[in-house]
Design a binder for these strands. Structure first.
Lengths: 198, 198
DNA sequence: CCTACCGATCGGTAGG
DNA sequence: CCTACCGATCGGTAGG
C-alpha cells in the first residue's frame, strides 16, 4: 500500500463524512480538497470525474456499513438475537454518524430518486443488497424454527426498513426524543407478528 | 389580484415542481427563471433571497397538500374511513407528484436534517403539523369509540408515517412494484392493532 | 419587470 | 501531487 493509496483512503473517509452532512451533490471537489489541504486538481486526479468520486464514496460507506452493522449481527445466534442485533447496530450506525450526519444511504435516497445515472444505479444496488441481507437473516430464522414459515422474507425486510426510516426521520429531522423508544416498540410488534407460534 | 400576484403564483407553482425533482438546494434562481422565461433578477425581485424563495415554495406545497390530502380525508366519517382516506390520499399525492417527483417534504427531510436555518425550521414546523394532524384524526376516532383509548395518538402518527416513508423509499428509489401492496398490508396491520376490541 | 454587472465557486483541463 | 487556467453558473446588486 503506497502513499497514493493512503491519500485515496483519506479522501474517501473524509468524503463519506462530508457527503453524509451535505449530500452527494453537495460533496464538491473544491470543498473536499480544502478540508484535506490538497489542491483541487490533486484530488481530482485520483478520480477523473465527480461521478466516480460519488460512486466510490458510496462504496466506501457500504464497506464500513458491513463492518459496523452486518458482520457483528451475523456473529449472533440465528433467529431473534441476530435480527435484534442487526436492528440495534443499524440504530447505532445512524446515531454515530449522526452528530451531525445520519445515514448516507437514507440521505442519498431522496436526493437521487429522480436523477437517473450511474450514481443512482449504484445506490439502488446497495440498498437492494441491504434489503436482501435482512431477508436472508430472516430466512435463516425460519429454517431454525424461530419465525413463521408462511411469511415472505422480503415483506419482512421492507417492514423492518420502514421502521428504520421512521426512526431516521423522527430522530434526525424532528429531533424527537421519543424516536428511539418508538422504533423499539415498532420493532417489537414486528417481531411478535413474525414469531412462530408454539 | 394584480399581474404581480399572478406571476408570483406561477413562480411558486413551478418552484414546487422543480424543487420536488431536484431538491430545495437544487432549486436555483437562474434555472427557475429560465423555465419561466423570466430574467434572473426579475424573478429574484419577488423574493429578495433564495432562502425566502425556498420557504415560500415549502408553504405553497403545504397549501396544496392540505387541499389534496387533508381536506378530502376530513370529509369522510370519523374513525377508520377517515384514517384510510388520509392514507390513500397521501399515497396518491406521492404518486401524482411522482412521474417524476415524489413528495417534496420527504425529499427535503434528508436534505435539510443537518443544515440549521430558517428553511429547516419551516420544514420541521410543517412536518410536526402533519404528524399532529394524523394524531388529531386518530383522537377523534378514539372519541367515537373506533380506536383503543389506551393508545398514544402521537405513537400512532409516528407509526403511520413510518409506513408512508417505507413506501416512498421502495416506490421511488427502488421502483419496487410491490411497494403499494406492502404499504396497504402494513397499514392494515397498524389499523387492526388500533381497532377497539368489542 | 429588464440589462448589465459583481465576486465566488463549480467541474474539469493543460502542462509540468 | 502542483500552479494556472477555462467556460459556466451561482446568489445577489445597481440602476433603470
Amino acid at each position: 500500500m503506497g502513499k497514493g493509496d493512503d491519500t485515496r483512503t483519506a479522501i474517501l473517509d473524509r468524503g463519506v463524512r462530508l457527503a453524509t452532512r451535505v449530500g452527494l451533490e453537495g460533496l464538491t471537489i473544491g470543498r473536499l480538497a480544502t478540508e484535506l489541504k490538497l489542491s483541487k486538481s490533486g484530488l481530482f486526479g485520483h478520480f477523473r470525474s465527480k461521478e466516480a468520486l460519488q460512486i466510490q464514496v458510496l462504496d466506501a460507506a457500504a464497506e464500513r456499513f458491513v463492518d459496523e452493522v452486518v458482520k457483528p449481527a451475523v456473529r449472533e445466534p440465528r433467529g431473534e438475537p441476530r435480527v435484534a442485533a442487526l436492528f440495534d447496530r443499524w440504530l447505532a450506525w445512524t446515531k454515530s454518524n449522526s452528530g451531525p450526519g445520519g445515514c448516507l444511504f437514507v440521505a442519498s435516497a431522496a436526493e437521487l430518486d429522480d436523477r437517473p445515472g450511474p450514481v443512482r444505479d449504484r445506490l439502488v444496488a446497495l440498498q437492494k443488497g441491504w434489503l436482501e441481507m435482512i431477508a436472508i437473516i430472516f430466512r435463516t430464522g425460519v429454517t431454525d424454527g424461530a419465525f413463521r414459515p408462511d411469511l415472505d422474507p422480503e415483506d419482512f425486510a421492507h417492514d423492518l426498513y420502514s421502521v428504520m426510516l421512521g426512526f431516521h426521520h423522527a430522530a434526525r429531522l424532528l429531533r424527537d426524543p421519543r424516536a428511539e423508544d418508538r422504533a423499539h416498540a415498532a420493532f417489537g410488534r414486528l417481531l411478535s407478528t413474525a414469531r412462530r407460534p408454539r
